[in-house]
Amino acid sequence: MNKLIPNLELGAQLQMVVAVIFSILVFSSLIFFAWKKLKPGALIEELVVRLKSWWVICFVFLFAALAGPMATCIGLGILSFFALRELYTHLKLRESDRSILLVCYLCVPVQYYFAYKGWYNLFVSFLPVFMFISIPFLLVMTGDTKDIVRSMGLMPSSLMIGIFGISHMAMLVCHPALNTNPDVGKGLLLFLIFLTQINDVMQFTFGKLFGKHKIMPTVSPNKTWEGFIGGLISTTVIGYFMGFLTPLHSWQLIVVSFSVALFGFIGDAIVSAIKRDFGVKDLGDSIPGHGGYLDRIDSLTTAASPFFHIVYLMILI
């Protein structure tokens, strides 16, 4: 247990961010409570369900992020498992793929073990190099070549969406050279999560307020140029002022925040297109009011790995 929660003594900056997050939650809970009393309706019921889920998400995420590397790896590993399960529920793979599917699920503990140990080279090469070669070969070994190309494409790619991106968040708190002081990794992780979620909210808000020109009308009618650019600028500004969480300088902060906003948008778009192809609104109903796990973390799946590598280059080289 001591290893799981070494000590929850956090630096002053981290404490402040935790306080800010919970005051946002308390503040919006109070407003919603008053709103529900004064003007009951369907919209506020929906918002209350969402807010309740946000409370749970914040508690779980903050605990996983701050309680030490092992808790982070286990927590994110479970998240990856849920994300993979949601994907495979809809992918309609062949029956002969079942044994290889087990291999895909087993990649979760292996990848997070590499992250926990901080073995950087194995961590970055295991999925995109070794699994991208071995899974197609294992599929060949099953001997069933009908529609094998589809499985060869889908199964390694599902690992990239479900495991690879998310596991970079674990690497942030486990990489030995980044974590000479344990608060650095935690600060970076909190910065990334906070910024991607703020980016989602900002793109949504700007889109609702000023949205006119659709970016991809056939994929997601809610995404507009106005929302995208407004989100990009406001996230970069907010990221600049949240910089006290990270060891980065001013121009580095601008580049990093801008890339989080950009890659977050890309992940959102990719998962939207996946859902459109499956013909579903959400990938699951595990989080009340938000849909499935992948619906909530869609922007993190693509924002985390570029964030890690940009920060890595800036700090260590």
Partner: peptide, 18 residues
Amino acid sequence: EGLHQTMPKGASLILPYN
């Protein structure tokens, strides 16, 4: 709904699916 994916006819391996 869906348990046939988790363990179809003839299979002995239980795999996670929603």
